[in-house]
């Protein structure tokens, strides 16, 4: 009897919190399909009455959404590919190659992870400005093309692969890059998938960097375009179906990846936190 009661309490708490965590997304989806008066009158209702695609139509006809989407896709693909390749190369060297300065370099990578990114906005702008890169695709991509946390994750993973693997391949006379590319990297698939996912998520959501890298609307990514669309318009019910629809488009890609790769996401979060 007592066990039954505590199970009931447990589920009640779980369901309450599940609602708190999920319902805002229900509100977002439902209201993006509503008419403006309907969204203003009954924002809590999960069912649009009447349902309409007008909000989405205006997202595509009345804003630069096609440009933002294109830029976001381009930047995300380049950033994800770059981070996965460069981070794993560096992680491999820090784990398996013997070279002078290796441990000092690893210390530096840890130190970089500890620098709070929030204080680096203006400094990053200064360098981009000085190098004449400000307001270009290069400015959106190059400064965030590698990340220390990714190097750290890959190094930890390569540490767990036994050394005998390379001994066997070395006899065949394979060079260092061949060894990395065709022997060790294929064994690192689980870590590579994790790194791909967190790189994709980080690149797709990246916002503050775009503020200091570009000001030309033709170079805006989706988060940047969305932020400029809504910022400053405080209170009021104006154009909420449109804004929520645009926000929904920004949420969907990561949501899809999340649903498919939930476990990887969970693992990525904990590996990233091991640094502390």
């Amino acid at each position: 009897m007592r066990k039954l009661a505590s199970t009931f309490t447990g589920y009640s708490i779980l369901i309450f919190f599940a609602l708190v965590f999920i319902y805002p997304f229900v509100i977002q989806i439902a209201n993006s399909f509503k008419t403006e008066p309907d969204a203003a009158a009954s924002p809590l209702s999960p069912i649009p009455h009447p349902g309409t695609l007008a909000g989405f139509e205006r997202v595509f006809s009345g804003t630069d959404m096609p440009v933002w989407l294109g830029n976001s896709v381009l930047v995300t693909i380049v950033l994800t590919a770059g981070r996965v390749f460069l981070d794993s190369m560096a992680g491999y060297a820090l784990s398996r190659l013997r070279f002078r300065g290796r441990s000092a370099l690893f210390g530096a990578v840890i130190a970089v992870m500890a620098v709070p990114g929030g204080v680096l906005f203006i400094p990053k702008f200064l360098v981009l400005n000085q190098l004449g890169m400000y307001d270009s695709y290069l400015a959106l991509i190059l400064p965030v093309l590698v990340d220390a946390a990714g190097v750290f994750i890959m190094k930890q993973f390569f540490d767990s692969i036994p050394a005998g693997v390379e001994e066997a391949a070395r006899i065949d006379g394979a060079g260092a890059f061949r060894m990395f590319w065709s022997v060790v990297l294929p064994m690192a698939r689980p870590a590579l998938i994790t790194l791909t996912i967190i790189s994709f998520q980080g690149a797709w959501n990246e916002f503050p960097h775009t503020l200091v890298a570009v000001q030309d609307p033709a170079l805006f990514t989706l988060p940047r375009g969305l932020a400029d669309l809504v910022s400053g318009s405080l209170g009021g019910g104006t154009q909420y179906p449109l804004k929520l629809g645009a926000a929904l488009l920004a949420t969907i890609p990561v949501a899809v990846i999340f649903v498919i790769f939930q476990r990887r996401f969970v693992r990525g979060a904990n590996e990233g936190s091991d640094k502390g």
């Binding site: 599940a18 965590f21 999920i22 809590l44 809504v230 019910g237 949501a255």
Partner: peptide
Amino acid sequence: AFYFPSVTSSVAISVVFLFIFSNSGA
């Protein structure tokens, strides 16, 4: 369900909360 909000875009989720907390909003 509890972890999902952490992986979404901070900008997108701010838009949603702007709506939820708007005057006479949800």
